[in-house]
Simulated scan of single mutants.
Amino acid sequence: MTQNIEFSEEKNNPKIKQKKQKKLVDMEGVVTHNLSNGKFRLKLENGVEVIGHLSGKIRQNRIKIVVGDKVTVELSPYDLTKGRITYRHR
C-alpha cells in the first residue's frame, strides 16, 4: 500500500521530470535550396516541399550539408511545412 502512495506522490511532484513521448514524423528528402542561418528548402520523398533547420547535434559536430544531399527530417504533426534535419545520408 505504501508503494502505491509513494508512486502517486512521485507522479504529482513537479520536481520529478517525466520523459515526454516524441510524436514526430520522420521523412527522407533531398536538399534543393540553401537558405540563411542553417535553414534549407527540402523536397520530401512524397513530393512536398518543406523548410528544414539543422538540429543541435549536426551543428555541434559541424556536419556540412549542401544542395543535393539526402537527409532525414523530423516533422511535427502540428505544422507539416517545417522540420528539423536530424541526419545526413552518405
Rank of each mutant, 00 (worst) to 15 (best):
residue 64 K to H: 07
residue 29 G to P: 03
residue 17 K to T: 00
residue 2 T to L: 14
residue 28 E to A: 03
residue 90 R to T: 09
residue 55 S to A: 10
residue 8 S to P: 00
residue 56 G to D: 02
residue 57 K to F: 07
residue 40 F to N: 01
residue 85 I to L: 14
residue 39 K to M: 14
residue 8 S to W: 08
residue 61 N to R: 14
residue 58 I to V: 13
residue 6 E to N: 09
residue 75 L to I: 08
residue 36 S to T: 12
residue 31 V to A: 08
residue 77 P to S: 09
residue 21 Q to V: 12
residue 2 T to N: 08
residue 24 L to Q: 10
residue 62 R to E: 09
residue 42 L to V: 14
residue 85 I to K: 01
residue 71 V to P: 05
residue 78 Y to Q: 14
residue 23 K to D: 13
residue 52 G to Y: 07
residue 11 K to N: 02
residue 61 N to M: 07
residue 66 V to M: 01
residue 48 V to G: 02
residue 2 T to S: 11
residue 90 R to A: 12
residue 83 G to I: 09
residue 7 F to V: 02
residue 77 P to K: 15
residue 41 R to V: 06
residue 31 V to D: 03
residue 29 G to Y: 02
residue 9 E to Y: 04
residue 85 I to F: 04
residue 7 F to R: 11
residue 72 T to V: 15
residue 80 L to H: 03
residue 61 N to F: 13
residue 69 D to F: 06
residue 80 L to K: 14
residue 21 Q to R: 07
residue 11 K to R: 02
residue 77 P to W: 00
residue 32 T to P: 03
residue 33 H to R: 12
residue 24 L to R: 04
residue 7 F to W: 00
residue 2 T to E: 13
residue 77 P to M: 10
residue 54 L to Q: 07
residue 1 M to Y: 04
residue 69 D to W: 08
residue 47 G to Q: 10
residue 47 G to I: 03
residue 69 D to H: 09
residue 90 R to G: 14
residue 26 D to T: 10
residue 49 E to T: 14
residue 78 Y to I: 15
residue 75 L to C: 03
residue 9 E to I: 11
residue 6 E to A: 12
residue 53 H to L: 02
residue 5 I to F: 10
residue 73 V to L: 08
residue 43 K to C: 07
residue 14 P to T: 06
residue 61 N to I: 01
residue 35 L to K: 12
residue 43 K to Q: 13
residue 51 I to T: 14
residue 41 R to D: 02
residue 16 I to Q: 05
residue 41 R to Q: 15
residue 45 E to C: 03
residue 70 K to P: 01
residue 37 N to C: 00
residue 28 E to W: 12
residue 1 M to C: 01
residue 35 L to Y: 05
residue 24 L to W: 02
residue 11 K to E: 08
residue 55 S to R: 04
residue 15 K to D: 13
residue 69 D to V: 05
residue 36 S to N: 12
residue 88 R to L: 10
residue 19 K to R: 06
residue 68 G to Q: 07
residue 43 K to G: 02
residue 71 V to T: 04
residue 3 Q to G: 08
residue 67 V to E: 14
residue 64 K to P: 04
residue 64 K to E: 12
residue 14 P to Q: 06
residue 4 N to W: 09
residue 75 L to E: 02
residue 71 V to G: 06
residue 36 S to R: 10
residue 46 N to H: 12
residue 13 N to D: 15
residue 67 V to H: 01
residue 22 K to Q: 11
residue 10 E to L: 15
residue 44 L to V: 03
residue 56 G to N: 10
residue 32 T to I: 15
residue 13 N to Q: 04
residue 45 E to P: 05
